[in-house]
Simulated assay, not measured.
Amino acid sequence: MPSKVTPTNLSPVVSIMAWLLMVISALAVFTRVGIKYVISRQLSLDDGLILVSLLFCILQSVCVANEASNGFGMQRSLIPDSHLEPLLKSNYAADMLYICSITFAKLSTLAFITFLMQRTRKIEWGIIGITVIWAITAEFAVAFQCHLPQPWDWLEGRCFDRNAWWNYFDISNLFLELIIIIFPSLLMLQTQMHWKKKVIVLTCFLTRLAVIISIVIGLVYRDRVSTEADPTLAPWSVAVCMQITQCADIVVACVPQLKPFLKGLESSGLRLYKLQGENSIRAGYYQSHGSRGKSVGQELSGLRGVSNQTTVTAHSPGWQDQWNDGQSHTSQSHIIRETREWVVEEEPVRTDDSLASSTS
């Protein structure tokens, strides 16, 4: 196939963008996982999910490059008939892998948020459930977009309105992104912490606006494509927008692992390590093996009718202090105060198989 970019052949652009954005996604994920492993010597659920997302991203990018090499992005009259079936099958697989990739990227972010926000577990699991159902229904829709036995043949086969369906998919994806942005941001706005730290944390959540912007641009180009006559040349811009959205979804899922964000979370009172005796998915997050530091925490529950909880943590120097660059303002110097009554039960650490308890 011709490799020169012309007004009637934009397939090289599609191929180059697919490979470039795949490399950016891979660098973001490996940087995140590498930093995490250096710090804690272990990975958690959200890291596993983002690695699965990257795997689907790589497979999807290979499919996009293959469909471009078979003529996607070229004028229909210039594509040999022998290249049409590989083009359509690659496009079919790329669409399904795209849904998987962005879904696991979202689930990685939601897993991290679920770890942090220990007081609203039902809301978090509700968002996760909506995301999973949304992805499964989307996969079924793409899988059966055209009549069997050739569900991938959207050139000659009988299919539903693909433009209308993808518009629905992108709009629902946009609303999911808004929920993932708004939910943790509202919690951080209610947290008593220095405004500079709060801005840093909120900025990391607001980086997901990049995904929303790419979705909106894709919707604009898809609307233009619906009026174009050439079915293989016109959609090239939509394909590039989908690659950008996929890359953005993966990259912004890695942003919360950056040092400024973690320091902001520590100062907000949210814990980044395991409470004694805790066995949930939050356990062991950023827990360093062989560290000399030791963290012991207790959760305080409010009286009847009070939904909030406060976490009180006692800390001795350990690996977490490395994030503070020797500064005197550590996570323990920020105290959240509320005028409220609490019932507190304190259990000291078990030593020598005996437990001393006191109630205050």
Rank of each mutant, 00 (worst) to 15 (best):
N324W: 12
T137C: 07
T137V: 13
E346Q: 11
R337P: 01
S101H: 05
V23C: 03
L209K: 02
F72C: 03
R76C: 08
I123C: 01
L202N: 07
P256E: 08
M188C: 06
A314N: 10
D153E: 03
P256T: 09
I215Y: 04
P151V: 10
S3E: 13
F175L: 15
Q257A: 15
K196D: 02
H147D: 15
K197E: 13
Q309Y: 10
H334R: 06
C63F: 10
L88H: 03
T191N: 00
E266D: 06
C159G: 05
T351H: 05
N70K: 14
Y273C: 13
I50G: 02
L116K: 09
E139Y: 15
E299V: 15
Y98P: 04
L189M: 12
M242R: 09
M117T: 11
K106W: 10
S226Y: 13
D170E: 09
T245L: 01
S307C: 05
D170N: 13
L84E: 11
S108T: 11
G293N: 02
K198N: 04
E156P: 00
E347N: 10
I181W: 03
G71Q: 06
I16V: 12
T232S: 07
S328R: 12
S108V: 06
S357I: 14
L110Y: 14
M74T: 11
